[in-house]
Amino acid sequence: MGWLLRSLAGPVLWAVLFSAVYALHGIGCAGGWQNRPFFWTDLQHAVLAGLWLTGIIAHLILVRYLPSGDGIKQFLIIAGTVIGLVSSAITLFPVVIISSCLSL
């Protein structure tokens, strides 16, 4: 079962990171973090981007060190870690480019 758990590690990390960023986004907006300056940006963007980048680094570690075995098992582990990395990179990139708490 070890290879299956390794295959799931990347997507699980994405799920955790996605949930954490979404939750922190809500908490930040409720707490007015977007109005608190933080270096060249605001606290809200800094916290979310920091968490996102930390997650991306964790994903890269999984991509580098998790694959093992051979054949289809190895393929699925690599696929799983890459799916996690790409998912986190694409679904959470808005933390660095979009206004945080404005809505309709």
């Binding site: 959470l92 809505s103 309709l104």
Partner: peptide
């Protein structure tokens, strides 16, 4: 998407929906 959710959260889910 039309209930008044902040732009950034919309973008998370828009990107995931396309992905």
């Amino acid at each position: 998407f039309t209930v008044g959710i902040p732009h950034m959260a919309l973008a998370f889910f828009s990107a995931a929906s396309a992905l």
